[in-house]
Simulated scan of single mutants.
Amino acid sequence: MELLQLGVRAADPRAAVDRALPDLADGGKGWHIVAVGKAARAMTQAALAHLPGAPALVITNRGNDMPLAGATVLRAGHPQPDQDGLSAARQLEEFLSAIGPDDRVLALISGGGSAMLPAPVEGLDLADLQAVNAALLSSGADITRTNLVRQSLDRLKGGGWLRLTPAPVAALILSDVPDDDLRVVASGPTVAPIGTPALARQAMQQLGIWDGLPVRVHDALDRAEVTRDTPAARNILVGSNGISLQAMLDAGGQDGGAALTGDVEECALTLLHAVQDAPIGVPLVFGGETTVRLTGKGMGGRNQELALRFARHARDLPGNWCFAAMGTDGRDGPGDAAGGIVGHRTLSALRDDGIDLDDVLRRNDATPALRAVGGLIMTGPSGTNVADLAVFVRYA
């Protein structure tokens, strides 16, 4: 847990902005700040210290939406877009549209922004975006395909912010996606789109969700522009999962030789193979982001489910061991848990409590099972988001 918290601290959005902004601010005149994502408030707080008096609009999720002097802070839904987010998107459009060509925009972007700013294209409404989002979340789609689809149905994604203002835009980006593809973080509001509407349609067909979506969604993709001009912006990566992993390595962790990626079941097997020969007392560290294909309606999250699936496969792993996985934002799925922690006694503890692990996993109901055996990681919102971190350690 100390290593995991160290990784979270390495993604401190205030420090990331403090490192990047002095060379960018250039005296601080004419700047307007617009921020979105789970780290939006913390990034804005740091930016205002360098740009006092700059108008600032912040859109973030519940738990990170405390008032901030000098800024307007708006709450928006996550992981499902909601009416608050729709209202925030309209206010953001008004904010950017009022900025003149002689001013400058500082965009502060972090993970979670895709769901927080729903701005449906012509012919769609919030309910349509919610239907698409729910289908994507339950399909097991990775974040790149998910945000490819979102970009094709939304005015603000895939460079949408740049098309609203004639002012030059500089963006500081805290990445929560694999390989730090800036087109994917928060669906790339200051970056060119990931792909075309045709590729988005193909992705939904491959995921098996196309036929179940409203006809209006099909029609909107048919009307969508194949290419949209994206004005230039200065996009700067200021924090990432890799930076957090490096901090954990510097503190005595060892590279686990695998990534948290793909479906949680496949990832659990990959991690089990990676830890077979782990030395006693040397923590192995991992980072990334997995996906879950929902087959039930239980309460849980990808890290909690990964922890339980790992425990199930590690039943024959010799010796004493512990494995923990958590989201750096302090939220794993729709509940309040950050992740899960399991060990060599977890399976017997579940059996003693009469909990059928296979049934738990079928229902995607990891939270109650982990709570019953003391395996929930509860941190509260961290104010940052650079995907997920995990640690395995074998001990005597």
Rank of each mutant, 00 (worst) to 15 (best):
L3D: 02
G7F: 03
A11K: 00
A15S: 12
A15R: 14
A20G: 08
D23V: 00
G27F: 08
H32W: 10
I33G: 03
K38R: 09
A39P: 07
A40S: 11
R41A: 09
R41C: 09
T44N: 08
T44K: 04
A46T: 00
A46G: 10
L51A: 06
G63V: 06
D65W: 00
L68K: 05
A69V: 10
V73I: 13
H78E: 08
P81W: 02
L92C: 14
E93V: 12
E94H: 11
S97V: 09
A98M: 06
G100M: 02
P101F: 05
R104N: 08
L106V: 06
L108E: 05
S110K: 01
G112C: 09
G113F: 00
G113S: 10
M116S: 07
M116C: 08
P118E: 08
P118W: 02
A119E: 01
G123H: 07
Q130A: 09
A134R: 15
A135L: 08
G140S: 12
R145N: 13
T146S: 15
L148R: 04
R150Q: 13
R155E: 15
A167W: 04
A170W: 05
S175Y: 05
S175M: 12
D180P: 06
R183T: 06
R183Y: 05
S187W: 03
V191R: 00
I194V: 15
L199N: 06
R201C: 10
M204W: 04
L207D: 04
W210M: 11
L213C: 13
R216L: 00
H218P: 12
A224G: 12
R228T: 15
G242W: 04
Q246D: 11
A258N: 05
L260Q: 02
E266Y: 04
A268Y: 01
V275T: 07
D277H: 15
D277Y: 11
L284K: 00
V285F: 04
G288D: 04
G301T: 08
G301M: 08
Q304K: 10
A307S: 14
R309P: 02
R315G: 06
W321G: 02
A325I: 09
G333T: 07
G333V: 05
P334M: 09
D336H: 09
A337P: 01
A337I: 03
A337N: 04
A337R: 02
G339V: 04
H344Q: 15
L347G: 05
S348A: 15
D352L: 13
D353Y: 12
D356T: 10
P368T: 08
L370A: 07
A372T: 09
V373M: 12
G375S: 12
G375D: 05
L376R: 03
L376E: 05
I377S: 02
T379L: 15
G383Q: 02
N385W: 01
N385K: 02
V386K: 00
